[in-house]
């Protein structure tokens, strides 16, 4: 398709402009890595005081955290800047997208792919590898497929969260904070073994905002753990759940764009 060329040109140009100031780029990268390390230290500090969290040991909990963050960062790389929707609407950026012959969401995605976010993907990839190494798994083909499906599905769930939150901005005024609570709050919950949550909260974060599918449930399935509430094969559902959630969020987005009421001005 001719469009693919357009996206390549846009992205290459965005990336080049990010590298135009190497010092500031390096600073951004370090900043991102420090944030990632703090999350690791947070979990480490917890396990310095307790031996297990909701029945999961250090390496198991680390896998939940690393897997969920890795999936989140991957989704975030592509659609994380949808948290800028209030600004896009206010400044009329969206209208600029609407007068170009490309889908609006694809333009939003390619407008701000941020290279510095890749550093966190690498970092959490490292933590995932560390956790897996400590757990001494037997690598069956099923385990590999499960892990990849979990990563892909988790990224899709993350993307769907951002798209849904971004869509809500068509109707909310100054709804940026509410959207962040939804996306970043959901991502925060996804880092922990779901057993630490009260049952009602946990049901919400599984059935409504399906973030326990990102890190926790695939870990349960991969490691053959027992969970009091869900069967152990639930971890296989991450990819289908991600695809479903993403499809719904895209439909909502389309509806939002078609019913856009103008950014004033």
């Amino acid at each position: 398709m001719g469009d693919a060329h357009a996206y390549r040109v846009i992205m290459a140009s965005r990336l080049r402009s990010q590298l135009a100031y190497p010092t500031s780029f390096a600073f951004d990268v370090v900043n991102q890595l420090v944030y990632g390390l703090i999350e690791f230290i947070e979990l480490y500090a917890v396990f310095h005081n307790v031996d297990s969290l909701a029945g999961l040991g250090w390496s198991q909990a680390l896998l939940v955290m690393a897997l969920s963050r890795l999936a989140f960062q991957t989704g975030d790389l592509f659609v994380g800047h949808l948290d800028q929707m209030p600004a896009y609407l206010r400044q009329g950026t969206l209208e600029t997208f609407l007068i170009r012959p490309l889908p609006v969401l694809a333009q939003v995605i390619t407008s701000d792919i941020s290279l510095r976010r890749v550093s966190r993907i690498v970092l959490f990839g490292g933590f995932t590898a560390l956790a897996l190494a400590r757990l001494e798994l037997t690598w069956t083909p099923a385990a590999v497929v499960l892990l990849l499906a979990a990563l892909l599905g988790g990224s899709l769930i993350t993307a769907a969260m951002f798209i849904t939150a971004g869509t809500a901005q068509f109707w909310l005024i100054e709804g940026g904070e509410a959207a962040n609570a939804f996306t970043y709050g959901g991502a925060y919950v996804a880092q922990f073994p779901a057993g630490v949550l009260p049952v009602g909260v946990r049901v919400f974060y599984t059935a409504v905002l399906p973030v326990t599918f990102i890190g926790y449930l695939p870990t349960v399935t991969l490691l053959g753990l027992a969970d009091p509430l869900v069967p152990s094969w639930f971890g296989w559902l991450t990819l289908p759940v991600g695809l479903t959630f993403l499809t719904l969020s895209l439909a909502a987005w389309q509806f939002g764009v078609r019913h856009y009421q103008g950014g004033g001005g």
Partner: peptide, 30 residues
Amino acid sequence: ARRIGVVFGQRSQLWWDLPLQESLRILGAI
């Protein structure tokens, strides 16, 4: 969008941080 051109006086459709000719190049690709 392929058949109309629009100029909004108060908002830009150029890329703020890029040289003008880069904007023209991207729009050519778009």
